[in-house]
């Protein structure tokens, strides 16, 4: 290679360029800063919600953590028991909270078994080939459909039944449950499949060799082995369902309901929908109420996520 010919590799070879020395650390620092942006955003978000929730009653200096905590707990307790009202002092989330818990329970009974079933079918039964690939692609695409589109689907199919009054469910709990179940279906299916895929082949082969039928193998060996992963996915799906607002607004979880739902055919509202209704009020005192509601919602979500993390770390056998 002749030295110094323009365009040759050697002309571009500058191992001692100063930029090489300082560009690296700067880039590393930029990457670290970017990563911290997310963390800082989370901290600011939580901090702003908590300070907004504390704005209501008279409060001490910021370092009085104990009294603040007591204040927050008292506020959340008050908000959890009060019914919805037009007066900020009397406003609360009892109806929405009960509605959300109903949704949680019923989605766990409807959506999760179907999702797990679909995952088991795709992973254990479906013959590899075109059919399976189509369903798989379909699920991947469903996972990317905006949640409000599921709301539109629920509105047309469950709430209105295309205009047939006889079989329409109306804006009742069961419409919300079915809509949210469809919404979380892709998440459940995908996580179930991943959990099943992690179960070693040898376990299946051993069960089959001992004379178990396919279903016996799945029921007694494969699913129990994959259960931690499946449960983690189920909890993540449920926490997605409980935080969703847009599809519930579409299927009629109205804000102005003063009666706690007692069954699947009752009218209902949900916690995030009530938060939305309070947050859009111009009166700043309602912002405190909304912040309290967000704290309740985040507390529910965080405890669900914590359970999921514990399950994942304690019980995962194959990974």
């Amino acid at each position: 290679m002749s030295a110094g010919v323009p365009g040759s590799t050697e002309a571009r070879y500058h191992p001692d360029r100063v930029a090489r020395r300082w560009l690296g650390p700067i880039f590393g620092a930029a990457c670290l800063a970017a990563t911290c942006t997310g963390v800082v955003a989370l901290a600011v978000l939580l901090g702003s919600v908590i300070t907004a929730a504390l704005k209501g009653p008279p409060h001490g200096p910021w370092y009085a953590v104990g009294s603040h905590l007591r204040e927050l707990v008292a506020l959340c307790r008050k908000l959890a028991t009060e019914l919805q009202a037009t007066e900020p002092e009397l406003a609360g989330f009892r109806v929405g909270l009960v509605g959300s818990l109903w949704l949680l329970g019923l989605v766990a009974m409807v959506g999760i078994p179907v999702g797990i079933g679909a995952g088991v079918f795709l992973e254990e039964y479906a013959p590899p080939g075109r059919f399976r690939r189509i369903i798989q692609t379909n699920i991947a695409n469903l996972a990317g459909v905006p949640s409000i589109v599921y709301g539109i689907l629920g509105l047309a199919v469950f709430v209105r039944a295309f205009g047939w009054k006889g079989i329409a469910l109306g804006p009742t709990l069961i419409s919300g449950v079915l809509t949210l179940s469809l919404l979380i279906l892709p998440i459940i299916v995908i996580t179930t499949q991943e959990a099943l895929r992690a179960v070693p082949r040898s376990l299946r082969q051993a069960a089959l060799a001992l004379g178990a039928s396919r279903w016996q193998m799945i029921r007694d060996h494969v699913v129990p082995a994959a259960l931690p992963g499946i449960l983690t996915g189920a909890i993540l799906g449920l926490s997605r369902a409980i935080g969703e607002t847009a599809p519930l607004i579409m299927v009629g979880a109205a804000g102005s309901i003063l009666q706690v739902p007692r069954g699947p055919r009752d009218l209902y509202t949900a916690l995030p929908v009530e938060i939305y209704n309070y947050a859009k009020q111009p009166d700043p005192r309602f912002q405190t109420v909304a912040a309290g509601g967000i704290l309740i919602l985040l507390a529910i979500l965080l405890s669900m996520n914590a359970v999921a993390i514990v399950i994942r770390n304690r019980f995962r056998r194959y990974d």
Partner: peptide, 23 residues
């Protein structure tokens, strides 16, 4: 850092809306 970022993804969108309006 990874779980923290995932936590950010788990926050309901309504909370982000409130965040925009309030802060």
């Amino acid at each position: 850092l990874k779980p923290t970022l995932e936590l950010l993804a788990g926050v309901p969108t309504i909370v982000y809306g409130y965040f925009a309006l309030m802060l």
